[in-house]
């Protein structure tokens, strides 16, 4: 029987390499989150457009993205798009795919947050003759953000845990690095355990951070001076 044997020397040897790859994972998550938030907001606002055609089109775009696997989208962007002359690095593809995929989910979070703003707030803004841009920017979004924080945070953490899928397009993130280390040294226990622990630590830290942001966020919303 192959007994359980944890090699501390090997652990310390590979830890810096895993950490270096963790930076790629975090970068992909950070950029993917920013892109997802922007796309989610764009989708959510377009879903409230006066144009029925636009509303329906965006609805189906969002449904299509949500109903197809992330890995298929990653492969499509990485292997198919170059045939149309659009070629991106693994990291850019990953950021784009994560942003688009989670943007579709976030759009529903943002839409329900915006829908949660009382009708009277919209009417007061209109009675005061504020433009639609000022209404969103100064009245609606500052009040809608707080209820959106928990769900948005959950999706960002989910995105972070989906980054190993980017290893399928050769992005050297944490899991890919662990696989390479394992195959080169015929030892998988330490690198994969380290990766698991790092995912756990980062996820818990992110969850704590999101909770703190939500707790400190004014209940009524915030106002830019």
């Amino acid at each position: 029987m192959n007994g359980f044997h944890w090699d501390w020397a090997f652990t310390w040897e590979v830890f810096p390499m895993i950490l270096t790859a963790a930076k790629v994972t975090l970068l992909a998550t950070l950029l993917g989150s920013i892109f997802a938030i922007v796309m989610g907001l764009v989708f959510a606002l377009l879903r409230r457009s006066n144009s029925r055609t636009l509303r329906i089109s965006i609805y189906w775009v969002v449904e299509f993205i949500r109903s197809t696997p992330l890995l298929v989208q990653i492969f499509f962007l990485y292997y198919v798009m170059p045939e149309f002359g659009i070629s991106m690095s693994p990291l850019a593809t990953g950021v784009f795919a994560l942003g688009l995929h989670y943007g579709a989910y976030l759009s529903e979070v943002f839409r329900s947050g915006i829908d949660g703003i009382e009708k009277g707030q919209w009417e007061a803004a209109r009675a005061l003759n504020l433009t639609i841009v000022d209404t969103y920017k100064d009245i609606v979004l500052p009040q809608a953000i707080r209820p959106m924080i928990p769900a948005t945070g959950n999706y960002i953490i989910a995105m972070f845990k989906e980054t190993p899928q980017l290893s399928a397009i050769t992005l050297l993130e944490m899991l890919q690095m662990a696989k390479i280390i394992g195959s080169e040294n015929f030892r998988y226990l330490e690198p994969f355990t380290l990766v698991g622990i790092l995912y756990l630590v980062f996820s818990l830290l992110a969850a704590y951070g999101i909770h703190q942001v939500e707790r400190r966020f004014p209940k009524e919303g915030f106002s830019l001076k």
Binding site: E118, Q121, S223
Partner: peptide, 25 residues
């Protein structure tokens, strides 16, 4: 217009509620 349910902006101070529209519009 003055509304039955006030419809003040809860995230703004009283002063900001009053100055927001004149400044923006």
């Amino acid at each position: 217009m003055v509304f039955q349910h006030f419809n003040l902006f809860p995230h703004m101070t009283v002063k900001r509620n009053i100055t927001e529209a004149p400044m923006r519009v």
